[in-house]
Design a protein around this nucleic acid. Structure first.
Length: 507
RNA sequence: CGGGAUGUAGCGCAGUUCGGUCAGCGCGUUCGGUUCGGGACCGAAAGGUCGCUAGUUCAAAUCUAGUCAUCCCGACCA
């Protein structure tokens, strides 16, 4: 066995990380590029993951009293212009609707016609249009807090796109809250950040660092931006969720006022927070291997796939009878308050081929059931968190009794693997030369997977941050919330610093 | 939007230098047979106006111009 095993995905992560990423998506049949530049078609396997993300997050939002609503896709240009920083941040990437109809030119083509007096912007985010509604909904402190979320699509006209990570149109949720007290609004942004972190870690098995963005990385119009940052397998950081404290910026521009207990009118304090289909990109890049997708059970479209194995009709009947007897019991098993999601794959294609399709799709547990298993009342189990040849025969009852703990174990392993990866690629760097080498690939022409997170001192000067970005394309991903007071010297200018921040290359 | 690369069957590619049986290969698909507990084998078949549009030429996948798309690097960004 001197020959290397053939991997299902080629190139491998090591050979060409970004090609590997695209091949994983193709092989798992999650999504594809569409005929519209920069936009993706999310196929059933990918959409099903999104539905699971929605379902679980939605529940978490509702638990803290948030309600869902829906606001228009179009934002009048005049609304958008109200918040100056906001305009600066998004103006360059807005799709704008200027006409309302098409007219036949009599030669087989259509001309745009019916010009609008005021152009409509396709929402890149909805603070301004939601703010307009909120200003009508709120008049008294008794109306507060107001907590609204919407599941929607947004458009940001990006120059360079990548499936799930950055597409022109993407799906997300955006929550918008209004409060009478500044501290209450700030507290809500951290509550949301904790929800995101918990969701990422418990469901996506994605270890994240909770932190605050520096001024230059803030959401346009926000006073503070909190974020969760995760490390991908190419050691780059991916911002996976954000929560913004907007102060009174948007309440002033949208005129969101309320009468307080003393009867005086005040501007309210607002927040906004969101996660997007980018989470699916994070999921892929954090866990998948050279055989394709690896899905954490809590978010997988299917938990278990059953693959019947037989060589003749007699065996086929035996095997199928066994499985059909076994299925209802499996279906009744509950998994974290949900039903176990089982796929019985009885398509007429070879077992090996089926097996590899499900490996590439990342299903946590594969069960091969053949005549030998029927005779022994057992099943042959393979786990996606282990090597594809590493399979075990266990009794059917043992499987039934333990399937939930197997899934939990897979979830746990995937999380731990990602956590260890992040930890072993995070370094306390205190010397600029060391820092420079850390972020410089050995071969510039073919930059290999290199770097990681540098946990280093920063004096707080925006100029140091900017210079590092210019030189190395490395940015401060966040100032971690749990950072401790520590005296040190800024990695760039050697001025005094009191805390460390995370530096990394990012998506 | 700047620099680079690529575009040939569902997927992965060869052929382009030097225009002339070059429209091919592997995988996949369909059919038939043999197999059968770790991506099976044999045989047959289907499938492409060579990204698109002009041009040069007796003749273009091949040369020229334009155009579109994708990927990589940069700027921008969740």
């Amino acid at each position: 066995m001197s020959k290397k095993y053939k991997t299902a995905i080629s190139p491998t992560r090591e050979e060409d990380y970004s090609q590997w990423y695209q091949q994983v998506i193709k092989a798992s049949d999650m999504a594809e590029n569409s005929d519209v530049r920069g936009c993706m078609v999310i196929k059933p396997w990918g959409y099903s993951i999104w539905e699971n993300i929605q379902k679980n997050l939605d529940q978490m939002f509702k638990e803290i009293g948030c309600k869902n609503a829906y606001f228009p896709l179009f934002i009048p240009k005049s609304f958008f212009e109200k918040e100056a920083e906001h305009v600066d941040g998004f103006a360059k990437e807005c799709a704008v609707v200027t006409h309302t109809k098409l007219e036949d030119d009599g030669q087989g083509s259509l001309n745009v016609a019916g010009e609008l007096t005021e152009p409509l912007i396709v929402r890149p985010t909805s603070e301004t249009i939601i703010g307009a509604s909120f200003s009508r909904w709120i008049s008294s402190y008794r109306d507060l807090p107001l907590m609204i979320n919407q599941w929607a699509n947004v458009v940001r006209w990006e120059l360079r796109t990548r499936l799930f990570l950055r597409t022109t149109e993407f799906l997300w949720q955006e929550g918008h809250t209004v409060h009478s007290e500044e501290q209450e609004a700030i507290k809500l942004t951290t509550i949301m950040l904790n929800i995101y972190a918990k969701f990422a870690e418990d469901y996506l098995a994605l270890p994240v660092i909770k932190g605050e963005k520096t001024v230059s990385e803030r959401f346009p119009g926000a006073l503070r931006t909190y974020c969760i940052e995760a490390m991908m397998q190419d050691k780059k950081a991916l911002q996976s969720g954000t929560s913004h404290f907007l102060g009174q910026n948007f309440s002033k521009s949208s005129n969101i006022k309320f009468q307080n207990k003393e009867g005086c009118e005040e501007y309210a304090w607002t927040t906004s927070w969101g996660v997007s289909t980018r989470l699916i990109g994070a999921l892929i890049m954090a866990h998948s291997d050279d055989d394709g997708l690896v899905l954490p059970p809590r978010i997988a479209p299917n938990h278990v796939v059953i693959i019947p194995i037989f060589r003749n009709e007699e065996d086929e009947i035996k095997v199928k009878t066994f499985i059909e007897d076994f299925l209802p019991q499996l279906n009744n098993t509950s998994y974290h308050g949900d039903k176990l999601r089982i796929e019985y794959d009885d398509r007429e294609i070879s077992g090996g081929e089926k097996n590899w399709q499900w490996i590439k799709k990342g299903v946590p547990i594969r069960l091969e059931i053949g005549p030998r298993d029927v005779a022994n009342q057992s099943v042959f189990m393979a786990r996606r968190d282990k090597a594809h040849r590493d399979k075990d025969s266990i009794s059917r009852n043992e499987f039934l009794n333990n399937v939930v703990s197997f899934l939990d174990d897979i979830q746990f392993n995937i999380f731990n693997r990602a956590l260890k990866f992040r930890e072993s690629n995070t370094f306390l760097l205190d010397d600029y030369n060391e820092f420079y080498d850390f972020f410089t690939p050995n071969n510039i022409d073919k930059p290999m997977i290199h770097g990681g997170f540098a946990y280093s001192h920063w004096c707080g000067d925006i100029k140091c941050e900017e210079e590092i970005k210019n030189r190395l394309k490395v940015t401060i991903r966040c100032i971690p919330l749990n950072s401790k007071y520590e005296e040190g010297k800024c990695i760039f200018c050697s001025s005094n610093s009191t805390k460390r921040v995370y530096f990394a290359k990012n998506y």
